[in-house]
Design a protein around this nucleic acid. Sequence first.
DNA 1: ATAATAGTGTCTATGAGACAATATATT
DNA 2: AATATATTGTCTCATAGACACTATTAT
Lengths: 253, 253
Amino acid sequence: MGRLADDEPDHFTPASLRVELVLLTVRDGRLAVLLVKRHSAPFQGCWALPGGGLGDHEDLDAASQRLLTLTTGLEHDPWHAEQLRSYVSAVPAQQTAGAAGSASERSDEQVSAQRSVSVAYMVFMPVGTDPAPGSAAEAFRWWAVDDLSDDGPVLAFDHASIIADAVDRCRSKLEYTTVAASFLQEPFTLGELRRIYENVWGVKLHHSNFARKLTSSPGYLVAEVDGSPGRATLYRRGSAQFVMPPIPRPVGE
Amino acid sequence: MGRLADDEPDHFTPASLRVELVLLTVRDGRLAVLLVKRHSAPFQGCWALPGGGLGDHEDLDAASQRLLTLTTGLEHDPWHAEQLRSYVSAVPAQQTAGAAGSASERSDEQVSAQRSVSVAYMVFMPVGTDPAPGSAAEAFRWWAVDDLSDDGPVLAFDHASIIADAVDRCRSKLEYTTVAASFLQEPFTLGELRRIYENVWGVKLHHSNFARKLTSSPGYLVAEVDGSPGRATLYRRGSAQFVMPPIPRPVGE
DNA sequence: ATAATAGTGTCTATGAGACAATATATT
DNA sequence: AATATATTGTCTCATAGACACTATTAT
């Protein structure tokens, strides 16, 4: 006990290391997350976040990008991806022991002692960009995040709390960063951008005040072709990463 | 390639799993972080964050609390602790191979193939709470975070970037949460709390406007004994976790 | 024609920032 | 007495929020 943590020889706790992707988009006017239906144990038939293990010489960011391409079939270029946080999920022993998964070289007791560390990444996908599953038989689906709370699909592992954390982070980030534009393909109009805020936050915003706020935020938007009253101006993203001062987020919801 | 990540049997990437603590406090009017001088390879003689491996049946939060007590010799009760993010640091092969550490049951090539996953936790310690090292020979020191950028100590692993992330997060959190009070022991005065903001942000705040803002923020502060003009009122923390609207942070620095 | 949307302008209420005045404790 | 600090009050300015008006496009 008197020994300090750092004095100890490096403690090689065995762990399986995975990256889980929380792909968010706006679909049918609602914030939505991409889920995959599992067809093997554990949690067979439940919905789960797409993810996978780390490659042998891969860091976390590289793995998240590889898995993103693997899942969506698309390059991630203009999208926003960031690490959310890590989760240690104890895989239920009976579930793991009964796994129908193939080539596991570990005995059951070793597997049950195994812990799983998932590093979650949050990725914003532009509206209308649908994933192209590599395996046609796979069941992909966008789920509105509001439908996950009650009477929704049964989620695997602790993915429900991962999604909740991602949604919280997403809604917060819209206030003080320019990531909302990551949900749109360029060029876009102020109305389209406003609907992103409205749908993600679940509020209604005044179009005139919104336009005044965003067009006066330095570096957020770059006008492409100028619009006279009645014609929507097209914008591309500017170089600013943050909005100062933040976009006020209505509290009443 | 056509296979989806989730189709794969669970990919047990071997990894050493550690928790690193970023203990922050305000000391001599500056934001400071607790570092430990390493006395064994790798990075012998460098300064590192206190940390340690996960116990066999421990989750991340439990490990961070255990290591906090182990490091500081104090219970963590009123303090603020939160997960920062995870880092995959490839331990340099030659450094690892030459490690003077004891009881490693792995061969050198196995060790060099080992990757290290560190989950960083950020903890706020009250002003004046000094850690009680368990081993007297150990070199603990508070370092002002501003002294780490240039001409500072040599930091082990990627701890410099972990600390930078924690400092950014800490400064941001002061804007929209009530965690600044975690740096103080109760009860405290508005002046003490203002100095926390000033020291962490490196700015000067107007005392009158600061008092008006914080005392009008619902649930942030609970007055203990009322003070007439000239006598400082003593406060304890209220139940509010967030400050709405956020405390404006001067930009000029 | 009607509705929906985009841009512009105006008014008001709120709150941040700056400053002054007073009261108390400390040296 | 002089200094530092805490509370209260006032003034100004920026801006969010609400609303009106006009122009254009879609149905």
